[in-house]
Design a protein around this nucleic acid. Structure first.
Length: 215
DNA sequence: ATCCCGAGGG
DNA sequence: CCCTCTGGAT
């Protein structure tokens, strides 16, 4: 995608959502971290359904440890990969207390040293909780970046590096949310809603007999 | 490359 | 039924 089109692309998404936010419910950075860990290969709606009652009681790592592995497992049983995630949440909580006084660290190295936290999760926490202009590449961002031609790449690492290059600084802080929300509601994996897409004229898959119409 | 793994949509 | 969902660890 050309530079001028990239600017137009984000200007339109910004006009549509001036202050985009993630949809994972949380009251503090710790709950955010847990919610993002739980969101791996799961929908936000599904995560929220489980964390709503959980977070009503648990707001700190100490309270999570008090609940215990059994309690956490039971609480998140409706989310995919729940056994691994429950273990990670308990161990991650223990490490936050041991290494960071119970607080969520604001640097990538410390975040990625926690179980269940990889580059994508660290980028989301850094962006939302600490205002760092990271662009986390999840399934939506990866798909939208490739399909539109905004930042093509075969791996999430390649796409993230490409986004860092092509996304103007003015859009970087919110680029992640604009892309993910666009991907979730319009540029969907199965049946992209191109007729209602406000950047369809800039999209690489629209003009070339792409995956839009299939024609 | 493979495993983990439930809910929702089509 | 199959695919997708804000991936990470082995």
């Amino acid at each position: 995608m050309r530079k001028a089109d990239i600017v137009t692309f984000f200007e339109r998404l910004r006009a549509q959502r001036p202050d985009p936010r993630g949809e994972l419910e949380h009251e503090n950075p710790y709950q955010l971290l847990v919610a993002v860990v739980l969101s791996a290969q799961a929908t936000d709606a599904g995560v929220n359904k489980a964390t709503r009652p959980l977070f009503a009681r648990v707001k700190t790592p100490e309270q999570m440890l008090a609940l215990g592995l059994e309690g956490v497992t039971e609480a998140i049983k409706t989310i995919g990969l729940f056994r691994n995630k429950a273990k990670n949440v308990i161990e991650l909580s223990r490490l936050l207390i041991e290494r960071h006084g119970g607080a969520v660290p604001g640097d990538r190295e410390a975040l990625e040293a926690l179980p269940g936290v990889g580059r994508k999760t660290a980028n989301v926490v850094l962006n939302i909780a600490f205002g760092v202009p990271t662009i986390a590449v999840d399934t939506h961002v990866f798909r939208v970046s490739n399909r539109t031609g905004l930042a093509p790449g075969k791996t999430v690492e390649a796409v993230e590096a490409r986004l860092e290059k092509v996304v103007p600084a003015a859009f970087r802080l919110h680029a992640h949310h604009w892309l993910i929300l666009h991907g979730r509601y319009v540029c969907k994996a199965r049946k992209p809603d191109c007729p209602s897409c406000i950047v369809a004229d800039l999209c690489g898959s629209t003009e070339k007999t792409g995956e839009k119409t299939g024609a």
